[in-house]
């Protein structure tokens, strides 16, 4: 099983609902976030294009944050997700510095936190991650890459996509439909 997310940049309106929904679902403290929105505008008026991306931890297959963690707090979990065991984390910040996507933050309680793909609180119960389930434009897809019939697999087959900073060699599991 390989969990993955695909986000349609053509439909995302950048509303940030995914950000608040994650905060309320996962008790992310105010002032922090596990996901965020990037808006890229390219061109000169009136020849313009916007790409909007809802970004979060990419649950990299080759995750530098796992590699550099001195305690094993950052580790791989079911379905290739990358998680942090809070009570093993010493808060050294190495993983934060190692993530090319700046996907991690230091929780005010000291440990490092980031997107979990809502693994324990939702996905294992058969629900979509909070951000996916709330998105008003339904532009996010979540599922198992190994299952050819999952939403993600299907949409990745049908559409052109990209991942972020492939040069970093992290093999992200969050895909952007373009």
């Amino acid at each position: 099983m390989r969990y993955a997310m695909a986000i349609d940049t053509k439909k995302c309106v950048g509303c940030s609902d995914c950000v608040v929904a994650c905060q309320t679902e996962n008790n992310v403290p105010i002032g922090y976030c596990r996901d965020w929105i990037v808006e890229v505008t390219d061109g000169t008026y009136p020849q313009l294009e916007i790409e909007i991306r809802s970004e979060r931890c990419n649950h990299c297959e080759n995750a530098p944050c796992v590699r550099c963690c001195p305690t094993g707090a950052s580790h791989y979990e079911d379905g290739g997700t990358v998680l942090v065991t809070h009570h093993k984390c010493i808060g050294c910040g190495a993983c934060i510095a190692s993530c090319p996507y700046d996907a991690r933050y230091s929780h005010p309680d000291g440990y490092v936190d980031k997107c979990t793909f809502c693994l324990d609180n939702r996905v294992k119960k058969g629900e979509d991650p909070a951000c996916v389930s709330v998105c008003p434009t339904k532009c996010m897809y979540f599922g198992d890459l190994d299952d050819p019939n999952s939403d993600v697999s299907r949409v990745l087959k049908m559409r052109k996509w990209k991942t972020l900073i492939p040069e970093a060699g992290t093999k992200p599991h969050v895909y952007y439909l373009i």
Partner: peptide, 23 residues
């Protein structure tokens, strides 16, 4: 009070709130 989500049966929102509603 922890979170607010849309009601699936509601034609105004089809189970999905907007960011303000969620917040």
């Amino acid at each position: 009070i922890k979170k607010i989500t849309g009601n699936d049966d509601d034609p105004h929102c089809n189970g999905r709130f907007c960011p303000r509603g969620t917040g």
